[in-house]
Nucleic acid binder design. Structure first.
Lengths: 131, 131
DNA sequence: GTGGCCGTATTAGTGTAGTAATACACGTGC
DNA sequence: GCACGTGTATTACTACACTAATACGGCCAC
């Protein structure tokens, strides 16, 4: 397991908070299998230097990932990716997805979309994700 | 068509911005048919007085609804609900729903949910909305 | 015209999220 | 012991969202 710093990149002027961009990237890397259980995330200082971002911003992202159970802080080592793929989503994660889905559906209903319309939108999103 | 002020209520301490609560309520009232094309929204001052909210906050909500094409500002009359139910959702609204749906699906994928899992979550949300 | 009603533009106050700077605690290898 | 590596706690700065106060322009009834 080597150095994963090159896998990351941020766009400070995108409007999306940097720490959130990092979270999304870690989740994406895990989902795509490029980051696996046991891998170590780059250290906050190292990645901060490479991305020209304050290391506290990286720390916030890593801390949030730890709170979500995605990684674990092992003392004297760093942030280690947890075996989340095999165990399936945590209740916490599932709740998040449910909330997001509710928002989408409610908005759709408010706009007058029918059940079929919503289903079409849902299918389009799924296809877009390559599922 | 009379006075619709009694249909509205806000909770300033809910964490959700007041103006957004009002937008949601208008959209909901239209979706449920209690507010129809041609109906006039309460005036910003009247509703502001009833709800003990600054009328500029109401104005922001109404202005946003107008920007979304939900209502139209008719000079010397007020905010009039547009015929949006029959015409179907505007491209703008549809884009919003798509974005929300994408967020939900992407997050689900990142959490390792399968297509079937996502479908289940989607169906649950739809049921919850009474569709 | 006058008064009263509509929403709006402008400006300011307030709270909070995001970011950053500093100092710190812990673990490892020498 | 010391040097160097982790991430963290605390604090402060900045930007923006939300709310509010004031003054304004348009429309209608009289």
């Amino acid at each position: 397991m080597g150095d994963f710093t090159t896998l990351f990149s941020v766009n400070p002027s995108s409007g999306v908070p940097i720490y959130r961009q990092l979270i999304e990237q870690v989740l994406g890397l895990i989902a795509s299998g490029r980051l696996r259980a046991g891998d170590e995330l780059p250290s906050v200082r190292q990645l901060g230097a490479v991305l020209s971002v304050n290391f506290m911003t990286i720390s916030k992202a890593w801390a949030r990932l730890e709170a979500d159970g995605v990684v674990l802080h092992e003392r004297g080592r760093g942030m280690v990716v947890q075996a989340v793929g095999g165990a399936g989503p945590t209740p916490q994660q599932l709740r998040q997805v449910r909330e997001l889905m509710d928002q989408a559906v409610v908005r759709g209903v408010q706009c007058g979309l029918s059940r079929a319309d919503l289903k079409a939108v849902f299918r389009a999103s799924v296809e877009e994700c390559g599922l």
